Amino acid sequence: MTDNAPPATPDFAQDAAAVREATDRLLDSAGKLDDAAIGEPSLLPDWTRGHVLAHVARNADALVNLLTWARTGVRTPMYAGAEARDADIAAGADRPLAVHLDDLRSSAERFDAAVAALPPARLPYELEMRNGVIERAARLPFRRLVEVELHRIDLGVGYGIEQLPTAFVDAELAFMTGVKFAGHIDVPAMELRAPDGRRWRTGRTEHTGVVTEDTGDVPYVVVSGPPAELVGWLTGRAKGTGLDTRGGPLPALPPL
């Protein structure tokens, strides 16, 4: 399945600024580690913290490839291939902390430069990401923001879903419900509800994304809780223990 960008136009400059701020926070968290901690397990299965940091750096370069494609019109894949992607991450995982930090900074600078070089007229340009996912150039800074914010959690350095910026939580909820899981055959029809009254529908349903009017009871699995808890569960960064399902079990979600 591919996940296509929603019709709403993202704020390219705002998302790019958010990426820079999130990168600074990631560097601050990673900078408190040491060489021994780099080799310790992360919160992701089979990955050390070094794997996580290497992945974040290589993801920046992969998105530079897509931004270059969008600017020039010349097809430039994110990665040379799945095996090459995995090999690059593995090769970079065991480096000393100082090398990881330099790599994160320099790859972030390359991403910033590629963002700045993209003409506004090219923002609607569509590209192919990993696994056949079609995305617009305008959405690439947000895609990068997701990588930086969620992988900071994966480092296991005390940064959790409850500390995610509110603006990011809201944007990620809209993305997960209106794009990632919209119409997904392996996701049951769900309505997510926040304490402030906001609702989102996703999964095996024709109506996905933000719910703008009250239709009463709905034939969906209803999952209620704080937006950050919902994001944590949807992205696999939390088990959803703080969510309410009217007494039933939480639906099983496919891996991202």
Rank of each mutant, 00 (worst) to 15 (best):
D3P: 00
S42P: 12
T177N: 06
D244C: 11
A70N: 05
A137Y: 08
Q14N: 03
G225A: 03
R71T: 03
R136I: 06
T68W: 06
G160P: 06
D35A: 02
G248P: 08
V133G: 10
V64Y: 11
G50E: 09
R198T: 15
A90W: 05
D88Q: 07
I38W: 00
V148L: 02
P96K: 03
D15A: 04
R110L: 09
P188M: 12
V221C: 13
L63C: 01
Y220P: 05
T48G: 06
L230K: 08
W47V: 09
L145N: 01
T235S: 04
F181I: 02
R144A: 00
M190T: 14
Y79C: 04
L145W: 08
L253R: 07
V210G: 02
A174E: 14
E147I: 03
E206L: 12
A57W: 15
S42L: 13
A62L: 13
F111G: 12
R110C: 06
A182G: 03
P124D: 03
P7Y: 00
D170S: 13
V64G: 10
G178Q: 11
L140W: 07
V210A: 09
G240S: 02
P7F: 03
P41V: 11
F12N: 01
R105Y: 11
G50D: 09
V52M: 09
T241V: 14
A91S: 12
A174H: 15
A93S: 04
F111K: 11
R152C: 01
Y125S: 15
A57N: 07
V52K: 10
P227L: 04
